[in-house]
Design a protein around this nucleic acid. Sequence first.
DNA 1: ACTTAATCGAGACGGTACGTCCTGTCTTTAA
DNA 2: TTAAAGACAGGACGTACCGTCTCGATTAAGT
Lengths: 195, 195, 195, 195
Amino acid sequence: MKDAYKKSPGRPRSVSSQRAMLKATLELLAEVGFEKMSMDAIATRAGIGKTTIYRRYANKDELVADAIESVREEIRVPDTGNLWGDMDALIENATQITLTPLGKQAVAMIISSASSNAKFARVYWEKYLLPRKQAFASVIERAKVRQEVASDVDAGLVFDTMSGIMLYALIFPPEEAWTDYIRRSLSLVLRPMPK
Amino acid sequence: MKDAYKKSPGRPRSVSSQRAMLKATLELLAEVGFEKMSMDAIATRAGIGKTTIYRRYANKDELVADAIESVREEIRVPDTGNLWGDMDALIENATQITLTPLGKQAVAMIISSASSNAKFARVYWEKYLLPRKQAFASVIERAKVRQEVASDVDAGLVFDTMSGIMLYALIFPPEEAWTDYIRRSLSLVLRPMPK
Amino acid sequence: MKDAYKKSPGRPRSVSSQRAMLKATLELLAEVGFEKMSMDAIATRAGIGKTTIYRRYANKDELVADAIESVREEIRVPDTGNLWGDMDALIENATQITLTPLGKQAVAMIISSASSNAKFARVYWEKYLLPRKQAFASVIERAKVRQEVASDVDAGLVFDTMSGIMLYALIFPPEEAWTDYIRRSLSLVLRPMPK
Amino acid sequence: MKDAYKKSPGRPRSVSSQRAMLKATLELLAEVGFEKMSMDAIATRAGIGKTTIYRRYANKDELVADAIESVREEIRVPDTGNLWGDMDALIENATQITLTPLGKQAVAMIISSASSNAKFARVYWEKYLLPRKQAFASVIERAKVRQEVASDVDAGLVFDTMSGIMLYALIFPPEEAWTDYIRRSLSLVLRPMPK
DNA sequence: ACTTAATCGAGACGGTACGTCCTGTCTTTAA
DNA sequence: TTAAAGACAGGACGTACCGTCTCGATTAAGT
């Protein structure tokens, strides 16, 4: 998010402080959650002053939003040559990220403040959901070509359905294994090509 | 949760205070949300003392959990004689409740604190989701009998999937109308009986 | 329990409740002081209801005033046939009462609320100081007759002076023994008959 | 008591806030008394946050103790060249200070909590009584030299006696004028040099 | 090498809400 | 009726956190 060009005078902002504050934020978020995490605690753990945080972020929300945004892991479009092979890879990736303490807290926050504060939802959407939705579309498109799935399947709606069930499972954990549960739900939606 | 029998001495807890505090809580929850709603504001609006609240509830969480729990509207199992007629009734009911300001705040809270505070999720599950899940099961059972739907459809999973998509839609509102969106998603899952 | 005689339609426990509440009040007053003593604590220790206290006394002040008033020990005018013999007896009596924890708290309270609440001061004056002032006057009158003291000595002022020094000693304890200190102070005032 | 040397990091404590809170405390103390004066009211009147008070003082007692301590007016040893001229000056000074609303409240508090909380009494002693006791001693010493008073007069005891009578008069106001009363009492104690 | 100016850590600031405690009143059941 | 038990409105207490604001002390870039 750096400006393209920099030639401002004065002491430049410390990169190590920036790293430290994001790290501390993510750690505390995972440990105690958004509400119970105080700015003072973050500053103390990061070994920096609160001023240094507030110079960069207007408030707690923005700091946390950016901290979460900073955890971007690459999403690689799988290509196993087979619909369910690809799907399993995507499900695996999604669950692995979502089921960490940090993932849970992040999703919780995003949902919690969705109506009041669009910030979190936007970040989540742009950095997390959208790439996956696109990967999903590719995978299903290939499956259509291979005639593994009906050609009128709405990939977007299928993705939304999967996201929904994952959200739901996060709050009301299924009795069976997470991946099985999602896989089973998804198989409802992804009906095979009629013979 | 009342004890079966009561003959405890002393002045009984005021029913009107109880009602007033729950009403004020629900109103303020809908208006300003959980975080911005202060206990003093609740007490003032209810025309009672803060003590009276804290005598019943250990903290804000418990008060709000109970307030939400108190909003139990009867869920009536629809019977239009037709699968999609019944489904539409259920969807209509669910969306109407979920899309009110109160509904949104309630869901937000429930989700938000799901991992840290099981209280909200439990209440939501018991008082809201479970009755609907059962209604759902009945409706689908009847549809199976009428051979409107394949006999191996897992009603529970279908319900979870629908709940998930509703949750998702609450955070990332669909571009089309809510009920259409849910209906469309549901039609993916509830595939008709193969001819 | 205490249902040895069950023929009381009226108020059989009235007297014992009264005694219990005064006793509890005096105990707690001595232990923790006026401010830190709560009405609930008094009621609990007395094994009675708060209502029972408030039926008799309008507020804490009045209860405590009455409790202190209830501790009336007889003041006997000493007559040793000698001025300082009598004085020593009076000093001894005054210090013994004032130096108990209860005495200290009582005096503290009385002084503390003197400007705002005349109640305590009045009780203290009527029940404690006035009898002593009169005893004092008698003793000095006799001393005048015996020509142990100048005939123009103002007994009232001498008493006030002694009371004052006791008050002062209560707050700023003298280094020597209490009775010696007061005796010494008093000897300043009670000058002997000029030869 | 400031440390001799200061170079602690961070923003220094606001001197104006400090002054404002002491001023507000003294005003409210004089107006409504210790018990009826709330910390919020103090903060509001001083135009500061409650936090700022509690950062400096652990509780209301300590704040008030320091506020009273802060009112130190210089006591000037009078020198009229005559015993009673000097005494009158001292009496005048003492009564003027003690008879203000603030003075009365201060004395009330000091006495009230003398046994439980030594803080108030200590402050009163060090900042108020001790300087006067010393002034008293000087004045009487000079009177001895001038042979206005017996050389064996114990100045300390005379001072204590006068303080006592003032305390007493504060609680049980004399019928005559304050200064006359004190003066009369003092004349008993300070007997002239025998011819 | 010397300015210059924005940064840093530290921590105080005003404000708001929390949950506890206490007073004096009210309302019930039991006797 | 009176007692006991305890709920009630109101209000102060002292704590925690937020986002802002000073401090003296760095730290580079541009003279």
